[in-house]
Design a protein around this nucleic acid. Structure first.
Lengths: 212, 212
DNA sequence: TAGATTGTTAATCGATTAACAATC
DNA sequence: TAGATTGTTAATCGATTAACAATC
């Protein structure tokens, strides 16, 4: 158990989104083949993915229960028990993150937002605290997740501060490579990396079109 | 050639960032082992990655030329010939994307920003056009990349509009699964997917700490 | 020369896909 | 029953790592 593959894990949120859509439309059962078609996967992959997170098997001829899948995926992804997080950096990106209402659906609650600029007071219902309060806040509420949305030159400092205060997982939106100790989790939301992939795929498509 | 692995491609921007840092510090040569240490990779992986994008080999004992690597990676990633893009949706996220000055370094130039709301006029030096102008704009300037930063309910419509006008690559920031034809490239900047990975890693760390 | 570092070939690991028997 | 759909085992594919000879 728990040894679900990284790839499967990353596909789950998309499945869930689609299944919820089906649920809304009143669809009760769905075949792996139908889902595969939407995402351009093979039906075997979809079945394997489902098998790795759900106890209930699909039924030959009828497929999988949409309700059951929605329940199981949400449960597996931990959307039912909310994780609390702090966010540091309330510039343009920080504003966007604070205004995004979807995080709670994903089991994430930004309970504290911080900035060095004390002029900012309130953003989308979130009170903005002075950065000097960050450490005590993390400790007092035992926060484990830290979101970094500061300019890249201060990102490492904020990172160190967070980890020093007890943060165990960092979601980094700054375009920089943070240095962290071994027992800390990190995800870099790296625009450059995504863009590299998109550019490559675009090139391939243009090349293909040319050769036709 | 050109068959560089997806994984390698996604590591390149981080290498580049680090190498530029070294360059700034005046470092002339660097060993694969030193770079591996920074990213927690193996040195073989670093060498393989470099080999797949650079003509110039590393030298035993001295390592790789930092200047040469910076040049080659930037060249490979296409940072020297700028791609033009349009962005649709100038809400909080759109604001953040427009204010991000780093895109040009990554070879991306947002030459047009659009919104249905005609009240918005100018954001960080970008004039905001009415959505009705999108199609003709894409056609006139032969834009190939479209960035979607609208609420999820209108994302598919915008996507269809873009593709209809000639867009070949979509960078989707809306939390939804877009349906696209085969010959179109897409990258979903899926927060839920990243968060799933971060949560899993956090869980693993907490479990490990508990068992000690 | 000796030792650090390289590039490449072969082995391993992990994820996807093909094949097929089981079943509603 | 026949056919659609399932789960599982084995084969394939792709990426990483180990082993090692080459070289500055």
């Amino acid at each position: 158990m728990s040894s679900i593959s990284k790839e499967t894990l990353q596909r789950l949120p998309a499945y869930l989104r689609h299944l919820k859509e089906l649920q809304k439309q009143g669809v009760e059962n769905v075949a792996s083949k139908a889902i595969a078609k939407v995402f351009n996967y093979t039906s075997v992959q979809v079945r394997k993915d489902f098998a790795s997170i759900s106890e209930e098997a699909g039924k030959p001829k009828t497929g999988f229960s949409v309700n059951r899948l929605v329940k199981d995926i949400a449960e597996f992804l931990g959307y039912n028990n909310i994780n609390e997080a702090v966010l540091v950096g309330v510039g343009n990106l920080g504003h966007a993150l604070l205004s995004y209402s979807g995080f709670k659906d994903y089991g994430l609650d930004i309970v504290g937002a911080f900035d060095i600029n004390p002029n900012i007071k309130l953003v989308h219902g979130h009170k903005i605290y002075n950065l000097s309060k960050l450490e005590s806040f993390i400790k007092r509420f035992n926060i484990l997740i830290g979101i970094i949305a500061v300019p890249k030159d201060s990102a490492q400092d904020i990172c160190d501060l967070m980890i020093g205060a007890g943060i165990k997982a960092i979601w980094n939106f700054s375009p920089c490579n943070l240095v962290i100790p071994e027992n800390i989790a990190i995800i870099n939301e790296d625009m450059a990396s995504s863009l590299a992939l998109l550019s490559q795929r675009l090139s391939k498509i243009l090349k293909k079109e040319k050769n036709q």
